[in-house]
Design a protein around this nucleic acid. Structure first.
Lengths: 193, 193
DNA sequence: GTCTATATAATGATAGAC
DNA sequence: GTCTATCATTATATAGAC
């Protein structure tokens, strides 16, 4: 095993912080807690991140990355219909939101994300994903020759998908595949038909 | 003006804490911050709440109360059809989630709610509201002679309603009436028809 | 019920050796 | 890049006077 660029420790810090922020909250997680989970001493964190909120930003970007990559991949796929591409993106995102040890989707909605100013640094990345949803919704409307306000429908679809985050808070055992299928079907019903 | 039972100061503490928890997070809000917002000294808080997490519980119960009262009122109203009662409850809740200075609906999803053990004390109250939704969804299915899994549909409807919370995080100017109408219509589409 | 004063512990972050 | 040692600050909560 050779060392990944930026060192593997940095990624282990991000992973540990993700779980801790979601279980104890950002303010309830001390830099000592994070260091202990990684197996290093607290001041060693500052060799990787200048301040605690920089770590929060990295955690957020890392949680958003898979969705951004999948949406880019799907938008460029000519073998799928619009309905198939939207369904695939919704399913992917919902499955992602239901999977893994921690409810990563909740991260972006923590109050500290806005209080620390990290939200502003994250906004452009979130906009890319939201735009991908809007494009797909508009394409579904066109493909099915439906009337409908694409912008409003997009926010509804997005709310339904992101609602998965809140469902998982209440029910941590939420089944990824069943929920993905259910939300994907719900999204199409929301658009009309 | 005479003094309300339990003193008016207690309620002012709850109101101040609600706003602060939602803007800075629970761990990011000190008891000094709360006291300063109310205009008292920090130790005076402990004449009203034994520990900080007791204040969090009261904040949560206070945020949930209007929905519980409205759902009880609607379930007992014989002048409305099932569709009208479900629409009214969804509209009421969404309007509530969109109104007021703070995004109170987000409170229940803060990590600290579970970390402090407050979630367990809140669960029975949340169940009452969720059950009200389930009853109304089942009645709509019966009224419209639709086939459908009431439990699954209830969770979808609930997710759509609660998704409003996340939308308001991103867009604090979310219009209460327009969003309520949109979500209520979406809920009926989710159920079928 | 509010105050002053304080105990006790934990916090984020820095300095400097290796 | 990690460590030990430490600083300055802030935290929750208590004691006791009024």
């Amino acid at each position: 095993m050779d060392q990944p660029p930026g060192s593997a420790t940095r990624q282990r810090i991000v992973d540990a912080a993700t779980v801790l922020f979601l279980t104890r909250g950002y303010g309830g997680t001390s830099t000592r807690d994070i260091a202990a989970a990684v197996g290093i001493k607290q001041p060693s964190l500052y060799a990787h991140f200048a301040v605690k909120s920089d770590l929060l930003l990295e955690v957020l970007l890392h949680a958003l990355r898979p969705s951004l990559e999948e949406s880019a991949r799907l938008q460029a796929d000519p073998t799928l219909s619009a309905v198939e591409r939207l369904s695939a993106l919704v399913s992917f995102d919902v499955r992602l939101l239901c999977s893994g040890a921690a409810n990563r989707g909740l991260l972006a909605y923590l109050p500290e994300v806005r209080a620390t100013g990290v939200a502003a640094q994250l906004a452009s990345h979130q906009k890319v994903l939201h735009d991908a949803y809007r494009v797909l919704v508009a394409e579904v409307l066109a493909e099915r020759r439906l009337d409908g306000d694409a912008d409003r429908l997009t926010t509804s679809v997005f709310a339904l998908v992101e609602g998965t985050v809140l469902r998982r808070v209440v029910d941590p055992e939420l089944d990824p595949d069943a929920t993905a299928a259910e939300v994907a079907a719900g999204a199409l019903r929301l658009i009309g038909g």
